[in-house]
Amino acid sequence: MSKSETGAQLLARLGGRPTLQGLEENLFNKDGPNGGDVFEFYGEEGVGKTELFLHFVTKVILPKNWNHFEIGGFGGKIIYIDTDYKFSILRLAKILNNRIRDIVNGVTMATDKQQDLKKPTEKDIDSFVKNCLQNVKLVRCLSSHQLICTLHSLENQVCECPGIGLILLDSISTFYWTDKASNMLDYNINQIKSILSKLVTDYNLVLFITKAALVKKKTKDLSNSFAMGDKSGKSDEMYQYAEFLGNTWHSFIQKRFIMIKEVSQNQSKFSLHCKQSKLTKKFTISDNGVQFL
């Protein structure tokens, strides 16, 4: 039986969601990401997964304009599901502060003539950042079971709040070992996948997920090395990927970004690779958060 809904319900469901096109042109081109996109960010410890997420958060929650400054944000709201307990509100506030300060200082230097435009004080910036932070909705979960229940309850939240355009889940691999020990891994991943895909398609949301590299790729996989051949080159070797959450999960992800860090001479070099869109990008992490090179 197909469900019917009134036009008003449809509008509430789909209308008014902020578009996130151009969220990060370095990664998703100009016309992406679109509603319904599910992207995964995979990497070892310390490759900047959470930092990259904070970068997306700042971009989405900042407004397009503030006073006469062009901020270039999306003025949207986000749901951040933190199962790794790594989300730091202080860090996010600091990145927001630094970015706005840079913009404010940059503009006033360029337009010296317009003295009448008054420069915002520290206090103004502070309260502006606090207002932006209101657009972040944070949920922390302790177990797969709680995650499943919370995801079900998010539907209400998303329904009530048309500003929500992005859901971030950091990370899907947290409960891997505990679920595996209780023999519930496949069941739980299936449940999580089905509720997430319902949320994303019904409400036209964008979903980003991190996955920690908990399992090492089997290096002695001969068939694999033959298939790759010689010409696969360096990049395939560097950006190794091992799926450990099963086929259901594998097929759920539309694009997978593999992140790595190289350390040379006391300098960390971060980069990110996506096989599906044949793209490799380098980035740095500073007090201003992630910046693409």
């Binding site: 929650i61 749901i79 509100i89 207002n131 932070l133 209101q134 909705k137 949920v139 979960c141 309850s153």
Partner: peptide, 14 residues
């Protein structure tokens, strides 16, 4: 209501 974790907004957290 009983089982899901509560949603908090960034401003309160800060």
């Amino acid at each position: 209501v009983k089982l899901s974790s509560s949603i908090r907004n960034g401003r309160e957290l800060l």
